[in-house]
Design a protein around this nucleic acid. Structure first.
Lengths: 188, 188
DNA sequence: CGGGCCATGTAAGCGGTTACATGATTTC
DNA sequence: GAAATCATGTAACCGCTTACATGGCCCG
């Protein structure tokens, strides 16, 4: 399981509460790993019980108190060990591809709206990533030079950008194919 | 769950046994959806019990008998219903990205070999996809013109090819970044 | 005679999703 | 007064992974 490791990395970058982690998983870390708050709270508890994390109760004004987690020495050792062992290259799980192949046994034209919707979502994500890149790494307000951690965050973000661009181009290809099939189903 | 749907699509393309499905999930369908044989056998049983699939015992010579599954009318209806309802755009789950960000708290240079290994795997996959494209869709032995099902299979395969190309380019970017960090960690 | 292929399963465990639950403060 | 934000949880379910299990045929 890599959620543990993602939490360790995120807490090393900056200690925070379960709620804050959940928000990060909707943003930067979430670009390549998703998690809901329910899951995060449960894993945080377990990691704390295992001695991987330290907790500090932080009283707040006008807001509920929070528990700020930070990485303890064993947590850091665990992460280090994981970093040094090989992992399996990812395999895709792409529902939409299943749908596209399935469209051969249904009405291909009915998929157009769905594919367009996905294209819009990926367009939004790309815009969001590009704005983040400008803000944190390449814009006038960004630190120069970047330190190692920032360089690594940037290259990961570039991966997200490349993924979204590739996906958008592919969805355009899919749409063109669907239109071709709808335009001339029997004729060549 | 989309495994059910992936199985329906695969069996509509061609009826087959659990074993054969498992092999397909290592190949064409597996380009965008993975599944192990254990999982497939269990789901096949459930789908048969639910009346989505029909089974036929096929005696064989020199080989164990097999059960050939095909899609029954309710299965086809289920697939059709799924095709007409919207699905969530995928979110990435990329362990390697977690590792890369984690490298900021360890030795970035230690990641080089791991990234190179991933790059090699994706290079192999790309070569494999390109060979399949030539064999089934663009080569001299391929049917012309392609029917709708083949066109859709081809556009999905083009997605896999685009994904692998993008990933390889990104891993090169990651390697360049790691080398830069190793070459001049304190100096700008 | 070892290894790989064909063929089908059972069992345990756990990571992740979904639904449910609470409650104060701030903002429109 | 409604909705969003901050903040933390419990409970049930289920899909998926991993390990274990069997057994004949073919090829080198």
């Amino acid at each position: 399981m890599a959620l543990e490791h993602a939490i360790l990395v995120s807490l090393l970058e900056k200690p925070g509460s379960g709620y804050e982690l959940a928000r990060r998983f909707e943003r930067s870390i979430g670009y390549f790993w998703t998690a809901t708050h329910q899951q995060i709270y449960r894993v945080l508890k377990r990691m704390e019980a295992d001695g991987l994390l330290a907790v500090r109760e932080v009283p707040q004004q006008g807001r509920p108190d929070k528990k700020e987690y930070s990485v303890a020495a064993p947590g850091r050792a665990l992460l280090s060990a994981w970093l040094h062992e090989p992992i399996e290259p990812e395999s895709l799980r792409h529902d939409l591809a299943v749908k596209i192949r399935g469209a051969a046994f249904d009405d291909p034209a009915a998929l157009v709206r769905e594919v367009e919707r996905h294209r819009a979502v990926h367009g939004d994500r790309l815009a969001h990533y590009l704005a983040g890149e400008l803000r944190d790494f390449t814009g006038p307000g960004a630190p120069t030079p970047l330190d190692a951690g920032q360089e690594l965050q940037h290259v990961v973000l570039r991966g997200g950008i490349a993924y979204e661009r590739m996906t958008i181009a592919w969805l355009d290809d899919v749409l063109a194919t669907l239109h071709r099939l709808a335009g001339a189903p029997p004729a060549g």
